[in-house]
Write a protein that binds this DNA or RNA. Sequence first.
DNA 1: GGATCCTGACTGACTGTTCAGTCTATGGCG
DNA 2: CGCCATAGACTGAACAGTCAGTCAGGATCC
Lengths: 214, 214
Amino acid sequence: MAARETGDAVADVRRDQMLAAAATLIAERGFSDTRIADVAERVGASPALVIYYFGTKDSLLTEALRWSERSFYTATEEMLRTTTKLRDRLQILVEWTLVPDKQTALTGDWGLWFDLWAQAFRHPEVKKDRAELDAQWRDLIMRVIQAGVDAGEIEPLDVETFAIMWGSLLDGLVVQVALDDPVVNVDRARAIVLGVAHKELGLVAPRRRVARKS
Amino acid sequence: MAARETGDAVADVRRDQMLAAAATLIAERGFSDTRIADVAERVGASPALVIYYFGTKDSLLTEALRWSERSFYTATEEMLRTTTKLRDRLQILVEWTLVPDKQTALTGDWGLWFDLWAQAFRHPEVKKDRAELDAQWRDLIMRVIQAGVDAGEIEPLDVETFAIMWGSLLDGLVVQVALDDPVVNVDRARAIVLGVAHKELGLVAPRRRVARKS
DNA sequence: GGATCCTGACTGACTGTTCAGTCTATGGCG
DNA sequence: CGCCATAGACTGAACAGTCAGTCAGGATCC
């Protein structure tokens, strides 16, 4: 019994290591420039072992993509539990999506998004997965907004349409920021996306505790 | 003289053919799954000739990316000259970006965007180019809006911020639509992006020339 | 006859995948 | 308890296919 468990645990740990390594590598070099030899090296194993676990390179990489996205959403969901005020929650969503840079380790490296999209565009399986994950993400936004409505913080509105709009806006801004657009830095993106949210939701301007600027 | 011109013309035509073929192929299969042999075949030439013109595969593909993006923007700019009314112009921008499907031949196949982004994320040269092109795109939006302001159609506003916001929103929605998101179809995306524009710009709801519906 | 355009044949490097077999540990069996 | 059979984890080495890029030379046009 203990034996079986050990065996399974070893396998699971290995798989996870490999997925994490693959995700990191994809984010760095891109999907197609990631060699299974690289992944193997990162986890201190032979390329053959990677194949042993995942059967094929494509399988490993697409699983890594899914794995990474999923962990991003669950992490965000977790984060949301820390507060209930609508404005703070929106801020958390934005903060969590528009993280300054790649210090987020394995959560949401932006490079991954691009490859996920590119892959989804051409491979129905990945496409389905991505759509599902995105539905989850929108659902999260919708729940946050609905909670705000229920709490009387804002007037009722079409939450689904808002979620689509706002989620897409966030995506688009992430693209700009991730690509180092000289005109769109993180702060500006943040300000824009929060501004639109507040305006669309009819939230009054945030009364800063410390308002130094004129 | 005529000789030189002929020679140059031949070379230019060849280059263009190759760029177009490469762009199409990238859109279909993706950047890294595009072989120079495929490009060569499409233009009825030998792989060696492709190398003869572009020196290296990477050079060909990145040039193709640029070429395609550029032709998209110029085509859009052209389109814009057909009208001067703000509302119609916004509609043209949207229509031109959110084209129903891949029947747009060589203009803006969405698959290209994804690969362009992925490539730009990791290669500074492409990154610079993309930023430049995007600046052009935003500039176009800004000019349209500014014209609307100047014509007294809308109140003055921060056009740059609007351009960033609206352009990003458009990008984000394109992603959803391109990836066949079951919740976000073209019509809905159109409605959303135009709705936001009208709201942010303070444009009154469009008075349809033919308003049959209640 | 010289420049430009073009090609077929080749190659060298890379890399996913296979395979035969090693090592370890477990669990049963006498 | 000691021994063996079995399974799972793992690897080194080789295989096989792919492809970007080279090269020496042919065609074409002025």
